[in-house]
Nucleic acid binder design. Structure first.
Lengths: 352, 352
DNA sequence: CTGAAAGCGCTTACAG
DNA sequence: CTGAAAGCGCTTACAG
């Protein structure tokens, strides 16, 4: 009976179910207005045919443009860290724009909570976004914003750091504990005699979740491997260069025999500057992030190891997750841990 | 005069040029049968409008399916290295299949040149591929095959290793010299007293371009940094485990004070097995590739560092380059160097 | 050398 | 609750 010319897709389903393609479309998209009996008949056929909608045709026919909002810190003069995720997001945008995606950017200042609140408010007010990608840098404020998303069932994705949120679609970022664990290993490489390690946190929020996870992993390494060492902890909450230098001066006057320094974030270049100014060239320095400043100090040897978590990739993956979920209806990993990359002066030219 | 309802795309171009859309289409695709004058008129309008064809509509209307051929080694029982690129290629295939791409796989045996020749012949015979992704493992045979591609102007992409080829679309693989350079640094970390390093090559083609590049970089590190060391070189051309063990026995009887071993490829796990069998637990071992076997020996400490070049990513990028070039007509990097990743037991769980 | 028309596989009003 | 018809922006025969 195969006298029909090889139909496929909705047409074929419609023929088999003896309905119109409009009805098939309703079932496919779970729209109302189809009798239960018709619906189940069509669903059965869809399953039997293992029907996969043609997304090309779908996107073309529906003129719908999906709008995504991005809420991340702006790159500052002080550090270009956030330029990388932005670059990754723009790369993703480039790729999916032709499939009817538009992306609006909202930035905030990491030193200014209000700027976060303002930007978040703008996203809320516009009331026209189908998804949000954000860095939940300010915990309380992020939770509040997420609340709004959950209410309006707007999917959202976190990058770089994580907070508790039940409605979350995906978290893309570093495995912090293991990252600190590896940091300790890279420090151990530099231990020679006194085994004195300085653990430095340069941040306004030194007791944040992120940093304490890193510290936990760091300590765990020495515990697990039973490595002799002496740890000195230094919190610097004023992140100006001058303050960093003063704090380091003081510590070094108390402990002139420090062999290794570990810095928990991208401000490691301040410490490198300090070492350079003092000509403490024997000290082994380990820190975070592949920023311009850090790259320079890695290149000329003041920094020994940088730990990185592919910030550009995080941005790229973050936006793509939204696209996969919203447009392609593909499943998306709820947690996607970035690898923990080790960058040295020998491989830094090929790191991205 | 904007009384026309916002036309766009070919229709708008046709209207402005006062021709039919069929003629516009001819110009867009550089097909013959258009008078020079009409052609230049249309081209001018296209430029002015900064027209970007809607690829969704294009792929939908033209039922054309692009066929790509993949020619790579098959994963063997001995090493699963080539499973990773294959996985990456399949991931890319999955992603672009809906855009009308089909991929055919042709495998060969790394221990058998004829199998390469056979598979290459099959690709030639079918005469229906629009692009080829291949690993040019056998240099002479690859050149011959590439010749055919160049003649028929079939774009091709190399992954993992490179050879001279003028018609090449893209090479995606490791920067070998730097990779060896970093390898030396990772070896230097393990030097304590005798500074004796064993440099091992376990391969049937120990003098291949790949290995000599790695060795060059390796030696260059010690030269540039003026590091005291004593290098012992060992070539093992019979890649059976038994032969590897025998060769190592012999070397160790001559040099019982070896501190560090560097292995130039994924067969490093044989050396780890040897060290384990001898309980030489103090020896620092560095090698290549994130294969299953190597992962195990990294986990339990017999291997200290693995250098990797994201084999899965190479496969993924390789296929995507062909897609970008052939279907999307996007520009493609002629050389894309993979990063040089350092994998340790501390970060191996998050490596991909 | 050029154009009118059908069609790719969907979605979207609109009418009933 | 259901269907006929137009249309998304292209491409492809086919006719002239």
């Amino acid at each position: 009976m195969k006298n029909n010319k090889k139909l496929s897709g909705v047409k074929e389903i419609a023929r088999l179910a003896d309905v119109s393609i409009a009805t098939v479309d309703r079932v496919i998209h779970n729209r109302s207005g189809v009798s239960a009996i018709t619906k189940s008949k069509i669903e059965k056929i869809i399953k039997e045919l293992n029907y996969q909608p043609n997304i090309l045709a779908s996107r073309l026919a529906s003129g719908k443009v999906y709008r995504l909002a991005v809420l991340i810190p702006k790159g500052s003069e002080r550090t270009d860290f956030w330029d990388a995720p932005l670059k990754g997001i723009k790369r993703a945008e480039e790729e999916i724009r032709q499939y009817g995606i538009s992306v609006d950017f909202f930035f905030f200042d990491l030193n200014n909570k209000d700027s976060f609140i303002d930007s978040a408010q703008k996203i809320k007010n516009s009331k026209r976004f189908d998804g949000v990608l954000l860095a939940p840098s300010f915990v309380k404020e992020s939770i509040q914003f997420i609340h709004y998303c959950e209410q309006d069932t707007i999917p959202f994705v976190f990058i770089d750091s994580n907070i508790e949120a039940k409605g979350i679609l995906s978290y893309i970022g570093p495995p912090l504990f293991q990252s600190g664990f590896l940091g300790a290993r890279l420090c151990a490489i530099g231990m020679r005699q006194t085994q004195k390690i300085l653990f430095v946190n340069i941040s306004k929020e030194s007791n944040s979740f992120n940093y304490s996870k890193i510290e936990e992993g760091f300590n765990n390494y020495f515990f697990e491997n039973d490595v002799d060492h002496q740890l000195i902890k230094l919190d610097i909450t004023d992140t100006e260069k001058k303050s960093v230098f003063l704090n380091l001066e003081k510590i070094f006057s108390q402990h002139p025999d420090i062999e290794v320094i570990f810095v928990t974030n991208s401000r490691v270049f301040y410490v490198a500057q300090f070492l350079e100014s003092k000509k403490y060239s024997k000290i082994h320095l380990v820190g975070y992030d592949f920023s311009k400043e850090n790259q320079n100090y890695l290149k000329n040897g003041w920094i020994d190891f940088l730990i990185c978590h592919k910030p550009e990739e995080q941005g790229y993956k973050g936006l793509m997750s939204l696209y996969h979920h919203i447009v392609l209806k593909l499943p998306v990993d709820q947690i996607y841990f970035m690898p923990i990359d080790i960058v040295t002066r020998e491989n830094q030219d090929f790191y991205r």
